[in-house]
Amino acid sequence: MPESHIIAEGLTKRYGDFAAVDGIDFDIKAGESFGFLGPNGAGKSTTMRMIAATSLRTEGRLEVLGLDANENGPEIRSMLGIVPQADNLDEELRVRENLYVYGRYFGLPRAVVNERADALLEFAQLVEKKKARVDALSGGMKRRLTIARALMNEPKVMLLDEPTTGLDPQARHVLWDRLFRLKERGTTLVLTTHYMDEAEQLCDRLVVVDHGRIVAEGSPASLIRSYSTREVLEVRFGTDKNEQAAKTIEGIGDRVEVLPDRVLVYADNGEQALSAVTDRGLQPVTSLVRRSSLEDVFLRLTGRSLID
């Protein structure tokens, strides 16, 4: 059994009467890729900041790399690589200089910093941009530079807060590829996301968070198995008619869910469910059979969709 890198028990963060994080437990092992999945405001970023020891917990226990997070902030951060939600690169410096000054913050000798900066420019596919101004980079490049910067101290754990939010699909795939390589090297990855495809791609295990609480935990596949069916049939009848049609569909598959724009029928065989729907005399405007995803898990657990 690999050692635990992060252990939380009853972890709580309160702002006045409001509990942003409300007594959560988790145990992240060395080399694991662990995700916090949830909508905006679920308490994911607050949890990340407590792990990074830049926000102090109100209650509970939180140990990061064997140290109490409230007591040992600087030492813990010397072993972490932190990628914040919003880039905070120094735009007055060039690309490579950003890596250089950041490496120096960790007390690394100049020779080591220079060597790592070059290797990480390569890793982040930014060698050609090394002398460019930061504000001239695209969103995806800035993100890769932020990740490269967080790797300067060769961290044991990488904390990635919404790593691909705001990026176009191509830039997201490039980034996922880079993160996947880190995972292969054995770096522990802890990430928050509200994209289920991201969680499915990158996480070995994840917790679904809502209103500061953990509502489910497991691997993406096991969560889908436990909380959803193998397939989902999506049918649309027009905004005014979905509700009515859902009543007729009731009883087909395991469960029927009505969203404002479509009706979801959870069934192990989507095609069979579709013929059952037409057998009942309904003619959907469009229909689609797909595999269940974490979005369905989230909908089942919270009654809401991930991205409002």
């Binding site: 600087p74 410096l93 120096r104 007390g107």
Partner: peptide
């Protein structure tokens, strides 16, 4: 490196500013 940052961290910040 961590012990170095504890002692010299302020200087690394100054170094960054001078560079900028």
């Amino acid at each position: 490196p961590f012990a170095r940052t504890r002692r010299m961290g302020w200087w690394y910040v100054a170094e960054h500013r001078i560079r900028a």
